[in-house]
């Protein structure tokens, strides 16, 4: 019995050696990528201990003294920190509630277009903003929405009162949402459109024979068939509720609306890097990662319980 196992083991080992001899190149190829991930993704992770240390750039992380939870206590004591948390949540919740269904609806409508050339031109135009940098989008936004900008000129020409799109808190949130949608709504349809190409056309044939209207088909066939994709995107979106990109809020904010426009990412940049309070910046970053982690895990488990689908 024992010898039998040993024979199997040595066979397996010699199989491995033969495999390596034939395919060592594959592992050699992976060398660079593995080093890349180590240097730029794994190496920074131990750096989160900066949140617990009296770090300064010259002494280095290891030589700096432990200070326990001092920076967490300091950060949690700042009113401006809680404001940035609140603003992040407000912008993200609006983005989720109104912005999540938008590309799904647009994809459903694009899917109804039968004229191929028209559909292609439309898609080309819809994807275009995705390829424009936030810096330019920010610049365009000022030219369009400033008090003397394009939109207000039109509003004035129609004999109405100009709207303070960028200088009133409520309107700024509205503008933030619109600009974000403008840039990404088209691009976000791609994943749903690709899910729709996988739908069996016989379903539509059968529905048509039964005298089903196009509108009805959209809701009774197309939408249920892409539900898996929708759920996965929803889990990812909920998981991202506590984190927010840096560039959009950074290029859009101005001193008048900082009470609604300062978000966690821009706050960490300003306090952590510009004011060189590395400890506080890292503490906030770590706090945010923990919240993100909890959100992803819970969104996934809720989805699994309700629809039996999750990302893992």
């Amino acid at each position: 019995m024992m010898s039998h196992i040993n024979v199997q083991k040595s066979e397996k080992r010699s199989g491995n050696i033969r495999y390596l001899r034939n395919h060592w190149i594959l592992y050699a190829m992976l060398g660079l990528p593995v080093i890349f991930y180590f240097l730029f993704h794994y190496l920074p992770i131990p750096g989160v201990v900066i949140a617990f240390k009296d770090y300064n750039l010259f002494r280095g992380i290891r030589a700096s003294e432990w200070v326990g939870l001092r920076y967490f206590k300091q950060a949690f004591g700042f009113k401006s920190f809680w404001m940035s948390v609140r603003n992040t949540m407000i912008l993200n919740v609006i983005g989720l509630v109104l912005g999540f269904p938008a590309p799904i609806l647009l994809a459903l409508m694009l899917n109804e277009l039968r004229n191929k050339a028209f559909k292609k031109v439309t898609q080309t135009v819809l994807y275009l903003p995705h390829f424009i940098s936030w810096v330019i989008v920010g610049g365009m936004m000022y030219q369009l929405f400033a008090s003397s900008g394009f939109v207000n000129t039109v509003i004035k020409a129609l004999g109405r009162v100009p709207v303070p799109f960028l200088s009133s808190s409520g309107w700024w949130i509205f503008t933030y949402f619109i600009v974000g949608q403008w840039k990404n709504i088209g691009w976000n349809t791609i994943i749903y459109l690709s899910a729709m190409t996988g739908i069996d056309s016989e379903l539509y044939e059968a529905a048509r024979v039964d005298g089903c209207s196009r509108f009805r088909m959209m809701f009774s066939i197309t939408l249920p068939c892409i539900l898996d994709t929708v759920m996965i995107m929803l889990i990812l979106a909920v998981g991202g509720l506590a984190s927010i990109g840096f560039e959009q809020p950074y290029v859009m904010q101005n001193s008048v609306v900082m009470d609604v426009a300062d978000v966690i990412s821009t706050y960490v940049y300003r306090v952590g890097l510009q004011q060189a309070k590395f400890g506080i910046g890292s503490a906030i970053g770590l706090f945010q990662s923990v919240i993100n982690f909890i959100l992803v895990i819970s969104a996934n488990s809720i989805s699994k319980r309700m629809t039996d689908k999750g990302i893992w």
Binding site: P44, G47, I50, G272, G285
Partner: peptide
């Protein structure tokens, strides 16, 4: 899914 965050990445 996991990253060090802005400050640890800068220090890195």
């Amino acid at each position: 899914y996991f990253s060090g965050g802005m400050i640890p990445e800068y220090v890195n």
